[in-house]
Amino acid sequence: MAVQLDARPPVTPATGNHSQSSGRLSRFDTRFSPYLYIAPFFLIFGVFGAYPLAYTFWVSLHDWDLLGSDHPFVGAENYTRLLADVDFWHALVNTLGIFVISTVPQLLAALWLANLLNRGLRARTGWRMAVLVPNVTSTAAVAIVFGVLFGREFGMINWLLDLIGMDAIEWKSNRIASWVAISAMVDWRWTGYNALILLAAMQAIPRDLYEAAAIDGASRARQFWSVTVPLLKPTIIFCTIIATIGGLQLFTEPRMFNSGTNPIRGGPLRESQTLTMYMFENAFSPHYNFGYGSAVAWLLFALIAIVAAVNVLILRRLGGGARPSARKGPTR
């Protein structure tokens, strides 16, 4: 009868304690290390994001004059006064108008441009880098150039309109025209940025889906609308939210566009004054009413949250989506 000898070394108490401590350390690392890795972000966000947001709400409940030392508590008086202010509603309409005119064409153009860059173009890397040039250009420089292009007397846009027999447009003193001019500036600057984000998502779509669609007889246009767009829905939602946040916080573009005529008021009759410009006007020069300006900031925050939520709900309800078929393997 053969006796099988155990070749493993005997476990000493020291070895056993070391194994147990290593196991506990491993479990601790697995359970808590992810929280330690993300803790710096939440710490910085709490100091520079959450705390200022809460403090701004506290300030909005006071009559907070930046030039005075006494800040009496007034409750919701700033908000009731704000909702009764005609200039606030005027700025709100301007903000929503510019947002709609700029965001919808911007996202559609970005989607078309991303699809074009996703094809087998020559010097694709150069073209992809070129679409990002407007985004890295100084906002002030872009606003000055567009202000000249949309000038009343010597602007190129009015010169082109004159060539086709149309009358010159008062781009800075006409409300709707100023919306269009500022929206063109925003679209020129941010379309390429969104196009690169959508392009990155397009390149992650499996090629076999397009091959299967081509075998089924789908044209390129049909493949784009039936395969590409549904699978880009999460990325489109992301771009929409980012465009919503940026579009409702416009400040530099309309201010620089009206640099010669009451810039902080958006023109002589507030033709293009946005909510951020209205907030700046009341919180700082010339009024220095920080409590009232904080109330404007909080209503703007609520507006951005509502519009972003509505956009997400609409996009989620639009159509289904092509999904890779999950093929089951043979059962054993």
Rank of each mutant, 00 (worst) to 15 (best):
W159N: 03
F150N: 07
A110F: 14
A143Q: 09
L160M: 13
G147P: 09
V136L: 02
N115D: 10
T137G: 01
T95P: 11
R128K: 01
I98P: 11
I144L: 13
K172S: 09
S173K: 13
A110Y: 09
N115R: 01
S138Q: 04
L107Q: 12
E170S: 14
E153S: 10
L96R: 11
S173P: 07
A143R: 05
R124H: 01
A114H: 06
T125K: 05
T95Q: 12
L92N: 12
V148H: 07
V131L: 02
W127V: 00
A168Y: 06
I144K: 07
V104D: 15
A114I: 04
R152S: 07
I164M: 15
A168R: 12
L92Y: 13
R119K: 08
G120C: 01
R124E: 04
D167Y: 07
W159A: 05
G147Y: 03
T137S: 06
A141D: 03
L163K: 10
W112S: 11
I157L: 13
A140V: 14
V142L: 08
V104Q: 14
A140E: 04
A114Q: 04
L111A: 06
P105R: 03
L149H: 01
M166K: 15
A168E: 06
L92I: 02
G126C: 02
Q106I: 02
I101A: 11
S138Y: 09
S102Q: 15
P134N: 02
D167P: 14
L107R: 08
L108Y: 15
G147T: 03
I157S: 08
